[in-house]
Design a protein around this nucleic acid. Structure first.
Lengths: 235, 235
DNA sequence: CTAATAGTGTCTATTAGACAGTATGTT
DNA sequence: AACATACTGTCTAATAGACACTATTAG
């Protein structure tokens, strides 16, 4: 945004003498629901490698909600935008840099945080777990999260995030942000199925997805069945 | 949210002694992009009554951006949720109550407001202009807004709002919040066309929209051409 | 060979686009 | 009658669902 120019001396005075402390001390945080995919280690070779959608969580060291899991996030500081703040906190809490993120929703219930009034601007982030280097954070299976005691309203935020993902998956290319560089159509279909919570028919899926894909020329192998073509996302 | 229970004495002490002022004084506001439809008065009787999408604006009395138009909105107070705050400010700035609203996006650029750091949670609101009683606010034609000098980044917020509306119109029933109780299919089609920015084919539109409509049994008249059936939204 | 998954072809059902043609009011 | 818009019918094109069938690897 370009710098604001006061129109007259009177306005200059007004702005100089303006006292921000008249407004309530409401803190603003950013929190990220970070999604990734991990292969569950299935030893049985005659079985499709199952994949799971995971969410990256950190364990709280301090009160309140000590020892509970929470979304990585932190307070927005004075000189930084929401996105700046997100980048900084993701780096410091999880070691991650350059993560694709988009705003999810802003949560403003009054008693979200027992310390003080905190309004949280939540983001959805997606990444390729094979490339990402994680520190001090754990990939948690999405299905397990409702069993956990989550800090604050973070369980609710995750639920909203998965709803948004489900809503956007069919008319955007958002999933590709969490796919590895090269993948098979079956793997991609599995990710769609996990997010949508329903099985899809393979021929129809291939048909609709194929214009977003580019053949790498490579194949998978050693899988106990017909090898599969590897594709990459065609931008 | 249920009340948080500290787990031990230590945590109780922590929370009692917690000092919120260590966090930067960032103010939070809510702003609403309120959409409505108004008939442009076309005297020429042999012409379809044109309708326009309008946005409700208020003129600023104070610095900064004195005498510019702005979105109705205001600061979020300590004890109220974002939605509470939206209800309160809409009432006080425009006289409106019971307006359908949904969250749009949170704007957090650092220099949005020359007075201090302000993060704004923006909402989209839709209403039936025939029923709404407005005070101290003006319905501005959407097409005129880029010509105006808008306060803060409100011009940008309006642009995002119309984009969101465009994105949601075809897979939600959001438009009906701004339709009058009874309307013709042509009127409804016009609203779709204004929001989408393109002409639609009438037969296809009738086909797809008709399962959302309920016949009132009434007809329009005196229009210089064949009368039109009046419908209402079928929930 | 069998088991297991990869991938193709095709029939059908549904939906969207295009447009001709009919209906019914006002002037 | 002329005009203007309302409304219907129908042909076609594109897309989605269902499912049978073929292909290719490991063991």
């Amino acid at each position: 945004m370009e710098k604001y120019k006061p129109c007259c001396k009177e306005e200059q005075d007004f702005l100089r003498e303006y006292n921000p402390s008249q407004f309530s001390p409401i803190a603003v945080t950013v929190d990220a629901v970070i999604f990734g995919i991990e292969k569950d280690n299935v030893d049985n070779y005659r079985k499709l490698d199952e994949q799971s959608i995971k969410v990256l969580l950190v364990k709280r060291d301090d009160y309140p909600y000590k020892d509970c899991y929470s979304l990585p996030g932190g307070f927005v500081l004075e000189g930084e935008t929401l996105e700046d703040s997100l980048r900084r906190t993701l780096k410091s809490k999880t070691g991650l840099t350059n993560v694709y993120s988009e705003q999810l929703y802003t949560f403003g219930e009054v008693d979200r945080d027992p310390r003080m009034r905190v309004i949280s601007c939540a983001y959805i982030s997606l990444l390729d777990t094979q490339k990402a280097k994680i520190k001090n954070a754990i990939w948690m299976n999405l299905d397990c999260i409702k069993e956990l005691r989550m800090a604050f309203d973070h369980g609710n935020i995750i639920e909203e995030a998965i709803k948004r993902l489900r809503g956007k998956i069919n008319y955007t290319d958002i999933v590709f942000h969490m796919m590895p560089e090269e993948f098979t159509i079956s793997e991609l279909q599995q990710v769609y199925e996990k997010i949508l919570g329903e099985k899809l028919l393979a021929p129809a899926f291939r048909r609709t997805i194929s214009d977003k894909l580019e053949d790498t020329g490579k194949m998978t192998g050693n899988a106990g069945h017909r090898p599969s073509r590897l594709f990459r996302y065609k931008k």
